[in-house]
Nucleic acid binder design. Sequence first.
DNA 1: GCGAGTCGCTTGCATATGCAATCATATAGC
DNA 2: GCTATATGATTGCATATGCAAGCGACTCGC
Lengths: 148, 148
Amino acid sequence: MTDLYTTNALRLLQVADDFRAGLSGEFSAVHGISVNEFLLLLHLERSAANRLPRVDLARRMHVSASTITRMAAPMEKIGLIDREVDDRDARLVFVVATNAGRAKLSEALSTFSKRAGYLFDDRCEDEEMEQFASMLRRLIAGPGDTLA
Amino acid sequence: MTDLYTTNALRLLQVADDFRAGLSGEFSAVHGISVNEFLLLLHLERSAANRLPRVDLARRMHVSASTITRMAAPMEKIGLIDREVDDRDARLVFVVATNAGRAKLSEALSTFSKRAGYLFDDRCEDEEMEQFASMLRRLIAGPGDTLA
DNA sequence: GCGAGTCGCTTGCATATGCAATCATATAGC
DNA sequence: GCTATATGATTGCATATGCAAGCGACTCGC
């Protein structure tokens, strides 16, 4: 009835939702940020110049431009990010992480890694992890810029 | 810096987000339902008695009970689901799919399968899909009830 | 340079969702 | 039985997000 492609896509969504739900609780309790705020900081850190125009962030995070505008406001207010304007194109508003933002990312990343350990450890052999990494790399959509 | 566990968890989230984003557009355009409404119908279909109390749906879908209440209202109104009360426990309000709901699920499921095909086909060998399925089955959190 | 069209950002409005409070029902202790 | 506690569902309020409109800035063709 349901082929292996379908089954795997369903499981993929389910595993990702489970993981994200667990992460969400600990992030908000321990670090005071949401998963999306964490991902925003991570996209900044892994971008070419450590800064990104808002529209790029929106595309990478699969959210609308207005969401970036509204996510950025409180993060600026508490000093995690800052804004820079492009010299040549006054339309572009870059988002750049502050030192506090990079520190917060670093803390959150260790929580993330800990939970990634919970997820995979004892359930997967090392060799499987390599295969898994290889599969996932191919599955990441198109030539877009990625986090990992 | 980032170990393989962390990398794989990041990629997992990214692939799932990419897939869900693509699905979301086609579901709303072609079938007039959201991804979450689709998953609700799917949980019903794959449950023991083809019906579930709202609180169970909430747990399976990682959403709050109030979200189920509010998702269910419009789905009842357009005839995709119906409500049943438990004989022995008057607190339980079961959600059950109507014939229209099962039909809608079936249509949406073929869209889902088509997109699962886009995702995996040409990127993965058959043998890899089996390994992937095996990994994902182990990764699905705990002993909870699952979709696949 | 000038106007038409495009692009990036923001804002108004509508929808979606979580948390806490509330209500109705069920269960346990007595 | 009666009360205290626990559970399921709903509702009020706050937050998050998308879409479409609006605004300012860039680009292209002339």
